[in-house]
Amino acid sequence: MEKTIAGKNITVNEEGYLTDFSQWDEKVGEALAAEANIPLSARHWEILTYLQNEHKNQVALSIRRIGKSGVTDIKEFYQLFPTAPLKTATKIAGIPKPASCI
């Protein structure tokens, strides 16, 4: 479905995830974060960039992998994105929701 955010038209699925990463920019990320009530700090951006790179390299994302990323640890990840961190962070990053159970 179509959605207007940060003055831009984007296409999202029924859960609000961008379906085309090329429509993503930092302003869109900021606006999606605001919808999730998360003010983005420099630490948030480091993690979002990491997630986007992992996605680009077709790495399946999981909480375990976040813990081993060297970018953040699981505890901090939950502090920065308190509710459902992997789901929330991937949505803000403009990449698909990971289909991971761990």
Partner: peptide, 17 residues
């Protein structure tokens, strides 16, 4: 399938709150 062992899993659970 990237499943942690019991000890690592406990660490993940603790860190996840």
């Amino acid at each position: 399938i990237d499943m942690p062992d019991v000890h690592e899993f406990l660490d993940i659970l603790t860190a996840s709150g």
